[in-house]
C-alpha cells in the first residue's frame, strides 16, 4: 500500500517539476520583454562597437596625411607571431645627415592574435586598434596590409 502511495507521489512530483520549468519558458514566450539578440546584418548601419574593441591594428593619419611612426621597430620586436614587418629607407635630410623613415609598415592580419603588445609598447603612440571586424575575404593575400598610406610622412611635432 505504501509502495503504491510512493509511486503516485513520485508521478505528481515529476509532473510538478516539469511544470516549474515550462512555466519559465512560457513566461518568456508570452512576454518577450527585453530582446537580447541583435539582428546583425540588418543593423550594420547603426552597429557601434565598444571604443576599446580590438578589431584590427591601424595607424592613425591626420588631415595632412601624416603619421607618427618613426620606424624604430619596437612593435616588430614585441610581436609574438611575426605579424608586423617594417621596411625602412635611409634618406638624407636638410642637415645633410641620413635619416631613417619608414617605407612600408606591413601588417599580416592573418597571423595577428590581438595581444595588444605592439599598441602598448609603441613609444610614439603611432598604432591603435580599429573597430573593423568584418575581415572575411576570398584571397588571403588581401589580409596582408600596408598600414602607412601612400605619400604619408612623419609628423614632426610628435617627437618630444
Amino acid at each position: 500500500m505504501n509502495m503504491i502511495f510512493n509511486y503516485i507521489r513520485e508521478i505528481f512530483r515529476a509532473i510538478s517539476s516539469l511544470w516549474a520549468g515550462m512555466r519559465i519558458t512560457g513566461k518568456y514566450f508570452v512576454s518577450p520583454g527585453q530582446i537580447v539578440t541583435q539582428k546583425y546584418p540588418e543593423n550594420r548601419a547603426t552597429l557601434k562597437m565598444q571604443e576599446r574593441f580590438k578589431g584590427e591594428i591601424i595607424m592613425p593619419h591626420d588631415e595632412n596625411n601624416q603619421h607618427r611612426c618613426t620606424g624604430c621597430g619596437i612593435c616588430e620586436m614585441n610581436c609574438p607571431n611575426g605579424s608586423i614587418e617594417i621596411l625602412t629607407n635611409r634618406v638624407p635630410n636638410a642637415d645633410g645627415k641620413t635619416e631613417r623613415i619608414i617605407d612600408k609598415h606591413i601588417y599580416h592580419l592573418s597571423m595577428c592574435t590581438f595581444c595588444g603588445l605592439c599598441v602598448k609598447t609603441c613609444p610614439s603612440d603611432a598604432l591603435a586598434f580599429g573597430q573593423e571586424f568584418e575581415h572575411a575575404v576570398f584571397d588571403r593575400k588581401k589580409l596582408t596590409k600596408v598600414l602607412n598610406q601612400p605619400g604619408s610622412s612623419l609628423k614632426k611635432e610628435a617627437k618630444q
Binding site: V36, Q50, R52, F53, K54, F114, G116
Partner: peptide
Amino acid sequence: RDREMILDIFEESFGSRLLHSFNAPGGLM
C-alpha cells in the same frame, strides 16, 4: 543570455570577449 552581459563588461574594458590578454607581468595592460 546571461553570459553575454559578462562578456560585454569584458569587451568594454579589454576590447575582447574571450581571449583577453589583459594581465601583464607587474599589473594590467
